[in-house]
Design a protein around this nucleic acid. Structure first.
Length: 565
RNA sequence: UGGGGCGUCGCCAAGCGGUAAGGCACCGGAUUUUGAUUCCGGCAUUCCCAGGUUCAAAUCCUGGCGCCCCAGCCA
């Protein structure tokens, strides 16, 4: 069987309009900008998740659609939390998603010297001062949401003194936390971000990218806007919680007299049945609730990838959910639907029995093996066919047999007929049970005239079920993944989100029975196990058999419309 | 109760003064050797509420109500 994912794919969802796209269009049309330059600015302090994908698709998508460019810039201003491993994983994820930053891989830390010079400029202009107050004192002086803050005694220092002190900060003469550099703006501003925000703090720590050159590091607010300015960003796009920072973003650029990009904010993605904050994801990793940042249950790009999500499906998802400013909760089912849509057209079909129940066909010749031709994709003949061996004993799914079927059940049950896909129509003649009354085997007869599964006399066979020849079955491990949390919003109500972890989010089936063609499944490819779902081939286990990770179930309108196995 | 942001179908979301796109969900019906897919068809006389302006408002004005974010030397 050919390895999957080489042929057709779903068409890319056309970019729908959104307010940012509209702004870019207008800026280009009226000549405000000649080209569009955006950037995706992650902090390398964790893995990227599906929420970041929304931002990546927005920023890189804009650049792609309007013939501009998008930079990948690490916002690495806090060495205490950042690691090279994260930066590498981020680059890998962005590439996997299908985007290319070309020559434009940047680091805020590469601008540290320039930033430092700009800080000195602000000090000379009387726009910044060195603060001696402790962190606690600064907080106390800041005031509250409804009361103005108090000015620090250090606020009146001369430029000369400030400059000397700041240089001594850089020279490493002070301990961590002993001093900070602050912007001199307005301690009574209703916007707390303007109450003399901290620009630099002392941190005697090596930096993952800049090495040990620095012991003072700029804050986000003093680095981000200037980085945008240096890179000639035209549209600086960030999430809503930074809207309050926009006046500060502008203030620094104005005082510095440098090119001023404009900042636009959009609503971050919230997805049901998962958590999206890096802090919480890190906690799951550290507490061992998942196997790592790339656990297939994680909403991280690495996790989704391991789960079997395709870049196309993630991009389509991001396009579908749109970009707005209202707090939105996207249902997990929309993400799941996005992979199904993509995998439906590209994944070859195969048969696999997860919970085997033996069926013996009494009137079928004992030693005989027949081979049936099965389509690799029922709607795409170009994907070819494969041979599936059939013999007297086959396994079917336990769920496909019910001794006392409810109304509307049209699989196998005593006295009833069902079609074994591509093989024969069989009829259940009897049931064999063990001493405890458990069904251990089903006895059937087959209709030799139904070779291939057709009903020559035109009789209607409602049910068609999948099967695997017992003698030819290949054993494999199958991992059934489900949602990580049991409630739509694990963060709600201030309770510990971990109380809502789904204890059943991973079930490992050790002895699934696969049709023989699956033994050669290539790692990284995806298949649809007919009637069950999409499965992604993970790393091969020690004994050479593949491990299959369930990406998503198939939709199932039988029963409560819920999920099956 | 200071500042910022948001309220259009169950969930997202277009719309920007001319009489409510689209997706997902849902409900019918057709095809089907996957209860899958595909395919047709249905699904907001109404845009948080109340007033007002206008020939005409989801779109403009006024006043309410509700939700989210901000008091890190995090980003």
């Amino acid at each position: 069987m050919e390895s999957a994912n080489s042929t057709a794919s779903t068409p890319e969802t056309a970019a729908t309009s959104n307010f940012i796209r509209t702004i870019v269009e207008e800026d280009l049309k009226n000549g405000k900008h000649k080209t569009v330059v955006t950037r995706f600015p992650p902090e390398p302090n964790g893995y990227l998740h599906i929420g970041h994908a929304k931002s990546i698709c927005l920023n890189f998508g804009l650049a792609r659609d309007f013939g501009g460019r998008c930079h990948l810039r690490f916002d690495d201003t806090n060495p205490a939390k950042e690691e090279v491993e994260y930066a590498e994983a981020i680059k890998d994820n962005v590439r996997w998603l299908g985007f290319d930053w070309g020559e434009h891989l940047h680091y805020a830390s590469d601008y540290f010297e320039q930033l430092y010079q700009w800080a000195e400029q602000l000090i000379r202009q009387g726009d910044a001062y060195v603060e001696d107050l402790s962190a606690e004192e600064i907080r106390a002086y800041r005031g509250t949401l409804t009361e103005p803050g108090k000015e620090s005694p250090c606020r009146s220092r001369t430029s000369e003194d400030n400059l000397a002190l700041f240089r001594r900060m850089r020279a490493g003469e002070f301990a961590d936390g002993a001093k900070v550099l602050r912007a001199k703006i307005d301690m009574a501003s209703p916007n707390l971000n303007l109450r003399d925000p901290v620009m630099y703090r002392i941190l005697h720590a090596p930096h993952p990218h800049a090495g040990d050159k620095w012991c003072i590091y700029p804050m986000y607010d003093f680095a981000h806007g200037q980085s945008d300015s240096i890179e000639g960003i035209t549209h600086s796009i960030c999430t809503l919680e930074f809207a309050d920072h926009r006046p500060l973003y502008k203030w620094f650029l104005e005082r510095l007299g440098i090119y001023q990009p404009h900042q636009y904010e959009f609503a971050r993605l919230n997805l049901t049945y998962t958590v999206m904050s890096k802090r919480k994801l890190l906690q799951l990793v550290q507490d061992g609730d998942v196997s790592g940042w790339d656990d297939p249950r994680m909403p991280t790009l690495s996790g989704l990838r391991k789960r079997g999500y395709t870049p196309e499906s993630v991009r389509n998802f991001c396009e579908q959910i749109g970009v707005g400013k209202s707090d939105s909760w996207i249902d997990m089912s929309i993400l799941e639907e996005a992979v199904r849509n993509d995998l439906n057209v590209r994944a070859p079909r195969a048969m696999a029995v997860l919970r085997p129940l033996k069926v013996v066909i009494d009137n079928y010749p004992e030693g005989l093996t027949e081979e049936f031709e099965a389509a690799n994709h029922p709607n795409d003949p170009a994907m070819g066919t494969r041979k599936v061996p059939f013999a007297r004993e086959v396994y079917i799914e336990r769920d496909d047999f019910l001794e006392e079927p409810p109304k509307g059940f049209f699989r196998l049950s005593p006295g009833r007929e069902v079609r074994l896909r591509y093989a024969y129509i069989v009829k259940c003649e009897s049931v064999v049970k063990d001493a405890a009354g458990n069904i251990v085997e089903v006895r059937c007869s087959y209709d030799p005239a139904s070779r291939g599964g057709s009903a020559p006399d035109g009789r209607k066979i409602k049910g068609t079920i999948h099967w695997v020849s017992a003698r030819h079955a290949v054993k494999a491990e199958v991992r059934l993944y489900d949602r990580l949390f049991t409630v739509p919003n694990p963060d709600k109500g201030g309770q510990d989100f971990k109380a809502f972890i789904n204890q059943d989010s991973l079930r490992i089936v050790e002895d699934a029975c696969l049709e023989p063609a699956l033994a050669k499944a290539a790692s990284g490819s995806s298949y649809q196990f007919e009637r069950q779902g999409y499965f992604h081939v993970g790393s091969t286990s020690a004994d050479g058999t593949p491990v299959f990770n369930r990406t998503a179930t198939l939709r199932d309108s039988w029963g409560s419309g819920g999920k099956k196995e």
